[in-house]
Write a protein that binds this DNA or RNA. Structure first.
Length: 225
DNA sequence: ACCCAGGTGTTTC
DNA sequence: GAAACACATGGG
C-alpha cells in the first residue's frame, strides 16, 4: 500500500479532523510543547489556566516567575521541565522576533526549522508540528503512532524520525492541507486501534493490510517511564 | 495497581 | 549511534 492510498482509506473512514485545536499560532505552538508525551485533555486544562491568568502571551511568559507558570501548567505533566521550555521559547521570540511567532515562521522552511530545533525542548516532532500547524509550512509530522502503524502495515521498516518523514515527503505532494489531515488521521487511528502492544483490530480501517503478528517482536514503542 | 498519553534531554554502554 | 532513564499529571 502506498502513502496516498493509505491516506484515502483513513480519510474516508474518519473524515476531516480539523487540526490543530487552538485560537492562534502562538497558542498552537504552546500546545505543541505541552502535549509532549501527554494526553491532549490535560493540555487543554493547562492552556485554559494560562488564558484565565492572562498569561498566554509571549511577553508575559518570557518574564514570568517559573513557579507561577509551573502552577498553571501543572495538569499537562512534566511541568517543571516544560516551564523551562516555554520560558526559553518566549524569550527567543521576544529577543529575536519582537514577540511574534508569525514573524519567526515567516521565513523559508529549512531556516525556520533549524531555528526551532536549536531551542531546548523543541525536538523534530514539536518543530514540525509548529511549522505545519502554526506556520502553514508543508512539513510532514511524524510521531510514535506513525512509526508503529507503518511498521505494522509493512509499508516502512525504519523507526528513525528523519527517514520516516522523508518517506512520506518523497511519496506525496508538498501540500499543507494534506500533511495536516494525514498526521491527525494517524493519531486518530492510533488512539482507536493500533494501540501499543495490542492488536485491537476489530473494525480497524486498515485491517487486512496489517501485519501485526510478524512485527510484534520488534514493535516500536516510545520510551518507557 | 497497572498502563498509557499527539517527546525531549541526559547519561551510559 | 542506540538503548535506558528522568520528567509527572490524569484517564482507562
Amino acid at each position: 500500500m502506498r502513502p496516498a492510498e493509505l491516506y484515502e482509506l483513513l480519510f474516508d473512514y474518519f473524515g476531516p479532523q480539523h487540526w490543530w485545536p487552538g485560537d492562534n499560532p502562538f497558542e498552537v505552538a504552546i500546545g505543541a510543547i505541552l502535549t509532549q508525551n501527554t494526553a491532549w485533555t490535560n493540555v487543554e486544562r493547562a492552556i485554559e489556566n494560562l488564558k484565565n491568568a492572562n498569561m498566554l502571551e509571549p511577553g508575559r511568559i518570557a518574564t514570568a516567575e517559573p513557579g507561577h507558570i509551573q502552577g498553571l501548567i501543572r495538569p499537562s505533566g512534566h511541568f517543571r521541565q516544560k516551564t523551562g521550555y516555554l520560558i526559553d521559547f518566549c524569550r527567543h521570540l521576544m529577543d529575536h522576533h519582537g514577540g511574534s511567532i508569525e514573524r519567526m515562521l515567516d521565513q523559508n522552511l529549512a531556516d525556520a526549522r533549524k531555528e526551532l530545533l536549536a531551542l531546548k525542548g523543541i525536538g523534530p516532532e514539536t518543530a514540525d508540528s509548529i511549522l505545519l500547524y502554526a506556520g502553514n509550512h508543508p512539513t510532514f509530522v511524524v510521531d510514535a503512532y506513525t512509526i508503529r502503524i507503518c511498521r505494522r502495515i509493512g509499508i516502512l521498516d525504519s523507526g528513525r524520525y528523519d527517514e520516516v518523514k522523508a518517506f512520506f515527503q518523497d511519496n506525496l505532494e508538498p501540500d499543507v492541507q494534506l500533511y495536516n489531515e494525514y498526521h491527525a488521521l494517524f493519531v486518530e487511528l492510533g488512539k482507536n486501534y493500533c494501540t501499543a502492544r495490542k492488536p485491537d483490530c476489530a473494525g480497524c480501517p486498515v485491517r487486512g493490510h496489517c501485519d501485526y503478528s510478524r512485527t510484534l517482536e520488534r514493535e516500536y514503542s516510545p520510551p518507557r517511564n
